[in-house]
């Protein structure tokens, strides 16, 4: 889909379409580029500051591109009591980035999510769309090595 047609699907000057439009752009670009935000402001007919305010409010929106592998660490309660904080810390130290950041080579991004609802296999992480459950400090190290080797 080219850029123009994203906007065509949304009637102009309807503020309620702001979030869906941003979601669509993020799907297309992987994040929200600044020039696109300006186009959105123009299309919806609201100040750019408001677009930016909305984009920075919701967890879903990224203002920077993500890595090839997006690792989402579930931080639900069940995962927490089963040690997901350790899993997160190990991931962070293995990849040298904090949650919410992307490695310099754009290979990995780490995000945390409130709960992905796979409590039965806690602690669980999702890499792109694949679930990895029942993790231990050892198995997570192996898993990341596997992805690093895969490149």
């Amino acid at each position: 889909m080219n850029n123009q047609s994203i906007f065509e699907a949304y009637p102009r000057n309807d503020a309620s379409l702001l979030i869906p439009l941003l979601q669509n752009i993020q799907t297309e670009f992987g994040y929200l580029p600044e020039d696109q935000l300006e186009k959105v402001a123009e299309h919806i007919g609201i100040p750019l500051s408001r677009v930016y305010g909305v984009a920075t409010f919701y967890n879903q929106f990224r203002l920077k591109p993500l890595g090839k592998y997006v690792i989402r660490v579930c931080r639900g309660t069940a995962c927490h009591v089963k040690g997901s904080l350790d899993i997160l810390r190990i991931l962070e130290s293995e990849l040298g980035i904090k949650a919410g950041e992307t490695t310099k080579d754009f290979m990995f991004s780490i995000e945390t999510v409130a709960c992905i609802g796979a409590c039965s296999i806690a602690p669980v992480i999702v890499i792109n769309d694949e679930y990895f459950g029942g993790l231990t400090p050892k198995s997570i190290q192996k898993l990341i090595k596997k992805f690093k080797d895969k490149g």
Binding site: A15, S16, L17, L18, I19, P20, L22, Q23, I44, G53, V54, F57, Y58, N59, Q60, F61, A114
Partner: peptide, 26 residues
């Protein structure tokens, strides 16, 4: 269908309304 964009507070009904209207979910 409206897809939420990730904000726990939108479970609160007036925040949810703000979100549907295209605002920050406050």
């Amino acid at each position: 269908i409206k897809e939420g964009a990730g904000a726990f507070v939108c479970g609160e009904e007036t925040a949810l309304i703000n979100s549907i209207e295209g605002n920050r979910g406050m």
